[in-house]
């Protein structure tokens, strides 16, 4: 009986302390990276390389999901708004839903899988094969060599990919709406413009930024703090993708609440 109580207290204690320890480790890592920022000559070239690599590497999948998204949004808008609603509303709907929500969120979710998993796996493998220790043993900082370039590459490229996705999705939506619903260019353009706020484009980019930070920081943190072999790497990768995806959705709500004022 008493051992059961002990066990319950142990579990309760762990469930409070483990997340606290994780927050502490994450904060440590942020401090590390903050300090590493002075080594510009180290992180700058690596950031450029990394940004190029994830930008080019992710372009295809981003083009693919954004064109599908735009197309499907147009089809569904056409399906829903038959009857006495003016046809130009399809233009508004496609543009607004893509730019405000679908573009940034879908890109972030896909990239959480593509970039987040890759970073967590790379850093996790480097951790368990002592490559990170080796770097430190040479008096070099893992923050400026490995972490900062990855996080900055995300911050640099993901908003760009979001903007590309927005344009491609709206463009595909336009083409699909034209060919299946027979909406004219003027109507679509009018619809796109009539409900457009100047903030909307920025909102998309701001979301891209926050999502990029989530992807970069979480996956680097999970990879960097990997423990125990191949299984540990697996846990880090899954953890990175799941945590990032949930965080993206959470940030989505928070940003909508904070920034979008009707």
């Amino acid at each position: 009986m008493s051992s059961l109580v002990e066990w319950a207290m142990f579990r309760a204690g762990r469930s409070v302390l483990d997340p606290l320890a994780a927050v502490g480790r994450f904060a440590d890592l942020m401090v590390e990276m903050g300090r590493g920022l002075v080594e510009v000559k180290i992180w700058f070239p690596r950031t450029m390389e990394e940004a190029w690599s994830i930008g080019v590497g992710s372009l295809f999948i981003v083009l693919m999901i954004s064109s599908f998204t735009g197309g499907v949004t147009a089809l569904q808008a056409g399906y829903q708004f038959t009857g006495n609603i003016p046809i130009y509303v399809v233009g508004s709907l496609v543009t607004e839903s893509v730019v405000l929500e679908l573009g940034p969120v879908l890109v972030a979710l896909i990239l959480a899988g593509r970039i987040g998993a890759r970073y967590a796996a790379e850093l996790g493998t480097m951790r368990v094969t002592e490559q990170i220790d080796a770097l430190e043993s040479l008096g070099r900082s893992p923050a400026s060599h490995l972490l900062i370039p990855r996080v900055l590459a995300c911050l640099l490229m993901i908003p760009v990919l979001v903007v590309i996705a927005d344009f491609v999705a709206v463009g595909t939506g336009w083409v699909i709406a034209k060919s299946t619903l027979g909406i004219s260019n003027q109507d679509f353009a009018y619809g796109a413009r009539v409900y457009w706020h100047p903030l909307d484009g920025w909102y998309s980019i701001i979301k891209g930024f926050f999502f990029a930070a989530a992807i970069g920081l979480i996956s680097c943190y999970r990879g960097y703090t990997t423990q125990q072999g191949a299984e540990g790497v697996g846990r880090s990768v899954t953890g990175a993708v799941v945590t990032t995806s949930v965080l993206v959705l959470l940030l989505d709500v928070i940003l909508a609440k904070l920034i979008l004022k009707p």
């Binding site: 480097m126 490559q131 043993s137």
Partner: peptide
């Protein structure tokens, strides 16, 4: 200090 110390890892630990 680490820059003045060479460390040979048991399993190499090369940057792969």
């Amino acid at each position: 200090l680490r820059a003045t110390i060479g460390y040979v890892f048991q399993n190499g630990a090369l940057f792969d």
